[in-house]
Design a protein around this nucleic acid. Structure first.
Lengths: 214, 214
DNA sequence: AGACTTCGGTTACCGCAAGTAACAAGTTAG
DNA sequence: CTAACTTGTTACTTGCGGTAACCGAAGTCT
C-alpha cells in the first residue's frame, strides 16, 4: 500500500466517479430532478450501494452534479464579465450569456434551481435562510467581487457590492425564469430591458397622467 | 337535500377546511416544508385520508396553504405600493415591507419558496420553465401591472413593465434571501442599497483606477 | 319502528424510493 | 496460503404518499 498504489487507486476511483456523474447527468436530464437513485445506478450499469459509497447520499450526488454545471456556467459568465468593452456592453453580454445558457439547456437549468428535495426528513435545525440555491449564491458572490474590484463606490463599497451582486443575479434569474416560461419577447429585447432597468430608467421615467406618480 | 341543507354542509366543510389548514400551518412552521401528511393529520387530531378528501393530494394542501400566505403578503405589499408618497419612498417602503415579512417569519418564507417537491414522479413533460415559485410569479405580475399603470415608458410599455416587474421582484427576493442568511447589515441599509441600484447608481459609479472600467 | 343512504372517521394496506447490512467474489501483499 | 482491500451484489428496513375498505352515528323515507 505505498504511495504510487494509492495514487493509482485514487485515479481509478476518480475516473469511476466521473463516469457515474455522467450517467447521473444523462438520467437527470432525461427524467428531471426527481430521478431515482435506482434509475441512475441502472444507467451507470451498476447498483445503488455503489452510488452511496461514492457520494454518501442523494444530496451528495446532486451536489457533485450541480457543481459541474455551476462551474461551467460560471466560467462562461466570467468570460463575458471580463471582456474588453465598456460597462454597459459587458453587462448586456453577461446577461445574454446567462439567458442563452438557460435557453439552450432548460433541463440543466431546472435541475440547478431545484436541488433541495428533502427525501426523508432532512435538516430540521434550519438556519432560517440557508435554503437558497447554491448556484445563485455563487453567482451573486462572484458578481459582487467583480463590482467591488472595479467600481469606486466610496465608503461601504464592500457591503454595497455584495447587495448589488446578489440583487442583480436575482433579477437576472427571476426575469429569465419568467421569460423562459412565457417567451414574451426575444432574448435581445429582454437583455436590453434589464440593462435599462439597471441603468436607472425606472427612476427617470415620467409619470403617467391620472394618478399619483409611481 | 334542498339548498339550505347544501349550504349548511358546505359551510361546515369550509370551517373544517380552515381548521385543517391552520393545523397544517402550525406543523409546517414547526417542522419545515418537509412535514409529512401524517404529522399534519395528527396535529389536526385526525388521520390522513381526511386530508386527502379535502385537498386531493399533498400538492393541493400545500397550494392552499401557500395561497393564504401569499395573499396576505401581497396585500401588505399592495398597501406599501399604493401609499401616498413619491416614487422613491414608495419603492423603499415596498422593499422594506417584503423584507420585514421574511425577517419576521422565515419559516413561512422558506415554505413559500419551496413548494414543488415532486413526491413520486411528477410532470415529466415539463414546459421547460414552469417550475418557478408561484409567489414570485404573482408578485412579479402584480408589480408589472402597477408599473404599467403608472409609468409612461413610450411604446412597448407593456412588455417592459413585465420584465421589470419580474426582475425587480427577483432582485428583492435574492437579495433578501442572502441577507436573511448572513445578516451583513441592517434592513434599512439593505433597502437603501437596493433602491440605489434601481436608481441607476451602478451605471453612474466611477471606475476604480487600475483596471478597465466595469 | 325499521331499512337506507350519507357523512366523518378509522384501520390496514400498496407501491416506491432512500438508505443499509451482509455477503461474494477477485486482486494484491506478506 | 492467508489476510486485507476493492468492487460488486442481493435483500432488507424504514418512511412516505396515496388508497381501499370498512364503521358507526346521524338523519330520512315508507
Amino acid at each position: 500500500m505505498d504511495t504510487t498504489q494509492r495514487t493509482d487507486q485514487q485515479r481509478s476511483a476518480d475516473r469511476r466517479r466521473r463516469e457515474l456523474l455522467e450517467a447521473a447527468d444523462r438520467v437527470v436530464l432525461r427524467d428531471g430532478p426527481g430521478a431515482s437513485m435506482n434509475a441512475i445506478a441502472a444507467e451507470a450499469g451498476i447498483t445503488k450501494p455503489i452510488l452511496y459509497r461514492h457520494f454518501g447520499d442523494k444530496g451528495g450526488l446532486y451536489a457533485a452534479l450541480a457543481k459541474r454545471h455551476t462551474d461551467a456556467l460560471l466560467d462562461s459568465l466570467r468570460a463575458a464579465l471580463d471582456a474588453p468593452a465598456d460597462r454597459r456592453e459587458r453587462v448586456e453580454s453577461t446577461l445574454d450569456t446567462y439567458l442563452a445558457a438557460i435557453e439552450a439547456r432548460p433541463q440543466v437549468y431546472r435541475f440547478l434551481m431545484h436541488p433541495a428535495e428533502g427525501g426523508t426528513q432532512n435538516d430540521q435545525g434550519f438556519d432560517t435562510g440557508r435554503h437558497s440555491i447554491p448556484l445563485l449564491r455563487r453567482m451573486g458572490e462572484e458578481l459582487a467581487q467583480v463590482i467591488e474590484e472595479r467600481l469606486d463606490l466610496g465608503p461601504g463599497t464592500h457591503e454595497l457590492a455584495r447587495v448589488w451582486g446578489h440583487g442583480i443575479v436575482g433579477m437576472m434569474h427571476a426575469a429569465g425564469d419568467w421569460w423562459l416560461g412565457e417567451r414574451p419577447c426575444s432574448r435581445a429585447e429582454l437583455v436590453r430591458s434589464l440593462a435599462d432597468l439597471l441603468w436607472g430608467r425606472l427612476a427617470a421615467a415620467g409619470d403617467r397622467m391620472g394618478g399619483p406618480g409611481f
